[in-house]
Amino acid sequence: MTAAPTATPLPAEWRDFFALTKPRVMSLVVFTGLAGLLAAPGAIHPVLGFTAILCIAMGAGGAAALNQWWESEIDGKMKRTAKRPLPAGRMRRDDARDFGMILSGTSVFIMLVAIHWLAAVVLALSIFYYAVVYTMWLKPRTPQNIVIGGGAGAFPPLIGWIAVTGEITLMPVLLFTIIFIWTPPHFWALALFVKTDYAEAGIPMMPVVRGEKSTRRQVLAYSVVLFAVSLLPWLLDGTGLIYGISALVLSGLFVALSVPVGLRTTQPEDTMKPEKRLFAWSVIYLFALFTALVADRMVLS
């Protein structure tokens, strides 16, 4: 055989296409989207509810594929992402792009014909926001990239809500805001204890650019704002007492765990326990808060 190995490339495994959709991120997307759908006033037929969530998940998967198509070179420079299908050379770049486009387009189309035009518009906007505004434009340019990226993750409950009501009101916007404000302290807590190689890959992450001290202060500041924002649905009469008390306790703990992270400095041989605790809590927090929101709605109706 004299032909180069690339002359007859093997077709990519279907599992690698699945991996392109970032299934673990998708589980959070499905959860918050479902929570928005269940917390919205009114009812949606289970088949249509399932379809709406499927569209949100497909849109997120398509956007994730486009993200990896664009960032394949950067991903190859970082240990955490070097094994992804594109940097590992298990798939052609164009195939990832086409896959992402098809998934995104299909999800918006189905949302449009089966659910509601406004839900389809916001879904399309969210995909554009993540794949273009965040990935291509702002992520490599500003240390505020995590704040901006949080906007992308905040769309699912908003879309789930609109799928039921067909309109944008204050409540779904508040749900959007909660995830938006939650993302920076969640991610920066992780960035403080995981030594990644973002700097080498040319991505300006906050702890690298502005320093650890500033990052810690901002984690604390955001968690205080999160405390206030998470109470708004209750204070503005959008929810009942179940959500109100849950938010008070959950967000109170969030702030309490942020205080040591915000005020201390990393010591030599540091085990970074406060940062790890805050990160672990931030994940539980989001699940618990949205579960409380749905429980509140179920009891009210």
Binding site: T8, L10, P11, A12, E13, W14
Partner: peptide
């Protein structure tokens, strides 16, 4: 063989 297996799975 691998080519055929992958194509079939897909």
């Amino acid at each position: 063989e691998e080519f055929i297996r992958r194509r079939k799975a897909r």
